[in-house]
Design a protein around this nucleic acid. Structure first.
Lengths: 146, 146
DNA sequence: ATGTAAATCACCCGAAAGGATGAGCCCAAA
DNA sequence: TTTGGGCTCATCCTTTCGGGTGATTTACAT
């Protein structure tokens, strides 16, 4: 966390310096025609570049702090309850993670393919996923499946 | 390549819209005191946000290799060699395991959707998998991915 | 120089997956 | 007894996946 706040401070300082220098240039160009346009253009340019810089570095920061994984191991049933995932849905989720197709899951659970589709659809909305691979990933990071 | 150019167009369009709206606000606030300061502030804010967005989305081409998140540890390259999985294929495999769609992978790696499909097809035959979820499962049990 | 492997891209086609919606059944709690 | 949640199944439709085949370019080694 130290690096995070020091970086924030650094960003703030840099932006402040930028503002000061912009003010300086503004008063220097006060007699130039179309001063406002030029001023706005300069501001736009500088802040666009600053934004890009911020964007890239901020992103790296995010990625670096991501793998920390301070995941207090919760009993899966609690997380399941929180997410509103029913036992049957969890069963299907596990079979998905094992690499089974919908038809295989349906055969294994002795229900129809449509039922499996419904379960999976509900699972996706509860896990906030669009694909089964995404659901697997999310369930894994949540500790629902190994 | 289609998506690349459409993204370019999208960026251009967005920036154009921003410029137009900025002009609009400028003429709306023309009677406000300190108009230049407010205008410059708005420009700075908007372009800073635009820059951040650009930085996070657009700049990914820098990382031809994957971001830190995906390969924190060096996987056993021996198994990869044994299975004949090429670096590029392994890269795709990791993105699959992260839950991305083929189109998303293509966008991230700056290649076409067809290329990703080919990689995945080869990957499946090398991993003896029929589905991407199965490939994930097998890669995981092989220790190729966490 | 020539063969080989990797990476790239394309097209076609069928199968699987996913979204939206409606509906019936069962059981337990209010 | 009504109500709601869980489970089941269906239909229609769109998108994504996956298989198959062939081609080009680059780089590297023979």
């Amino acid at each position: 966390m130290k690096r995070f706040w020091s970086n924030i401070a650094l960003y703030g300082l840099s932006l402040g310096l930028l503002l000061v220098s912009l003010q300086f240039f503004r008063y220097k160009w006060i007699f130039v025609r179309n001063q406002t346009e030029w001023y706005a253009g300069a501001v736009a340019l500088v802040f666009c570049i600053a934004g890009i810089w911020l964007g890239t570095h901020w992103k790296q920061q995010r990625f670096k702090t991501l793998p920390v994984e301070s995941n207090p191991i919760q009993p899966p049933s609690k997380i399941l309850e929180q997410l509103g995932i029913t036992p049957r849905e969890f069963e299907v989720l596990q079979l998905i993670a094992q690499g089974h197709s919908n038809q295989e899951i349906a055969d294994q659970l002795y229900v129809s393919l449509n039922t499996i589709k419904t379960h999976i659809s509900n699972l996706f909305s509860k896990l906030d996923a669009d694909r089964r691979t995404q659901a697997i990933k999310k369930a894994k990071t949540l500790g629902l499946i190994p």
